[in-house]
Design a protein around this nucleic acid. Structure first.
Lengths: 138, 138
DNA sequence: ATAGCTGCAAATGCTTTGCAAGGCC
DNA sequence: GGCCTTGCAAAGCATTTGCAGCTAT
């Protein structure tokens, strides 16, 4: 059984989308993709990367998150005006959003299914369907 | 059959929620509620009110939209980070959002129904469910 | 009279951008 | 070497806030 080679994985992930494996991007890719599905804001990711001792400017965090999104590594989720969330799971799925904590999480499996896809307005095509279940702490 | 009395209606609508019927708020209430369901941004509403010759500062537009939302006259819909939309229909319903035009519109009737309400995470209760069907021009 | 409202300008919060210096192929 | 990246600081947007003057009751 082979040992994991996360370093290589991160390099490959960047290489596969045509982005250079810089020190900054490698650290971000590892934080984002080596621990299951995640939902982060730029500010959060900046804190995390700083905590593990890697210096990355906030501007670079933003640039990277946008680049990752552009190449399909991430997906942006609109839940609150003013703050952007990025989701490492790019497959079609939905979310719980905790208004009290600002925490965003996937809705497991297929526990939400739309009974019917509504007919799109004239001259438009459906691109995606986002379901956000807003919850509050008890 | 009685004639409509929009002036009185607007006054009453404000009075019923404890807000003084000022020149500015009356104009906004009329624009918002006297022509069926609407979805507006602050900037849009500001343009409209200005066009009909009423002077209202953008700060007052924002303050009013927030006050109207706080008292339940409006509902805020999060579709894009950076811009807030306000919906005059406060009943539970869902939306189409046109990514090309930035236009938000109600999904008619019950053409979208969730098959199951997912179980909320521990110690949380569901507050609301927002479905946004993103469309693009053909 | 007085509590509430408005408008201006300044402040805020998040995000983007210009540009010089540095890093990867 | 040459193009891509980074980081800083400045700029940008949408929105909020402080406060002096005005308005509804």
């Amino acid at each position: 059984m082979k040992k994991d080679r996360p370093f290589t994985h991160a390099i490959d992930r960047l290489g596969s989308v045509g982005l250079r494996p810089t020190r900054q991007r490698l650290a971000l890719v590892r934080l984002l993709f080596e621990n299951g599905d995640r939902h982060v804001t730029a500010e959060q990711l900046h804190r995390e990367v700083t905590e593990i001792g890697v210096k990355v400017s906030l501007a670079t965090i933003y640039n990277s998150l946008n680049q990752f999104t552009a190449v399909g590594l991430l997906r942006e989720v609109a839940v609150e005006t003013g703050r952007s969330y990025f989701d490492t799971n790019t497959a079609a799925h939905h979310h719980f959003f905790n208004d009290d904590t600002g925490e965003l999480q996937d809705i497991p499996g297929d526990s939400v299914v739309l009974s019917t896809l509504p007919i799109a307005p004239d001259d438009t095509v459906v691109e995606s369907v986002d379901v956000i279940v807003r919850v509050r702490n008890k």
